[in-house]
Computed example of a mutant assay.
Amino acid sequence: MSRSAVLFDFDGTLADTIPLIVASYRHTLTAPDQPAPTEAVIRSWIGRPLLETLEAHRPGEGALLVDRYREHSTAHHDTLIAVVPGAADLVTALQERQVPVGVVSSKRADMVRHGMRVTELPHVDVVVGLLETTAHKPDPAPLLEGARRLGIDPADCVYVGDAVVDVQAAHAAGMAAVAVTWGAGEEDALRALAPDAVARDVDELRTALTGLLELDGGSSAPTS
């Protein structure tokens, strides 16, 4: 089945924000009587809402910890965020081929748009963030909202993400799922969920989209 639109996750997919997220969680959770969580543990949290994650880790302290996290993340955002080579060119190429493109993230939409500007990603009209839905990945609600805003049937969408919750949400939404391995998720864990494709770099992602997208009445690779 060919699809006609693409929704992207942001953190770890369109931009390399993993060092920023790891540093911010460590800053937030380090305490004299409690060591900071390991990077592997933190990576397993990526893709889930911040408050939910922090409250689960330290019950009763979630709201306070969110403020601490965001203060650190904001202060270091522009220096720790990095470009994913080829991501901007791929999004631009999709837009030039008139493929509807959106971003669906578990962080606030304003922060996603700021990160897109910093990493020089092209503007997209549809950005669904934390506040746009009450349920969050792995629930399909954010992805379904993204499809609704694009005006595309969810079954005609591809969702591209780097975390286990991204693949789970795509399946739950009835979308094709493409997992990328340069972000938070371990490749074996991503493959175990049977996504439609797995990409180790943007060239492989471009190839995966070749087989999933319907462009100009037939399958064709977006090229930069």
Rank of each mutant, 00 (worst) to 15 (best):
S2D: 02
F8Q: 01
D11P: 12
D11V: 13
L14T: 03
A15K: 10
D16F: 09
A23D: 15
Y25L: 15
H27W: 14
T28V: 10
Q34F: 12
P35E: 14
T38W: 11
T38K: 14
A40R: 15
V41H: 13
I42V: 15
W45Y: 14
R48H: 13
T53H: 05
E55T: 11
G60W: 08
A63D: 08
A63I: 05
L65N: 13
H77G: 13
L80S: 12
I81N: 07
V84S: 03
G102T: 01
V104P: 05
S105M: 09
K107M: 07
K107F: 04
A109K: 08
M111I: 11
P122V: 06
D125H: 07
V127N: 15
V128G: 06
H136D: 02
P138Y: 04
P138M: 02
D139P: 02
L144G: 04
E145T: 10
A155W: 02
C157Y: 06
Y159S: 01
D166S: 07
D166C: 07
A169D: 12
A170V: 06
G174C: 08
M175L: 12
M175Y: 12
G183Q: 08
A184V: 12
D188K: 08
A194S: 15
P195A: 01
R200W: 14
T210Y: 00
D216S: 15
D216W: 13
S219M: 02
P222C: 01
T223V: 13
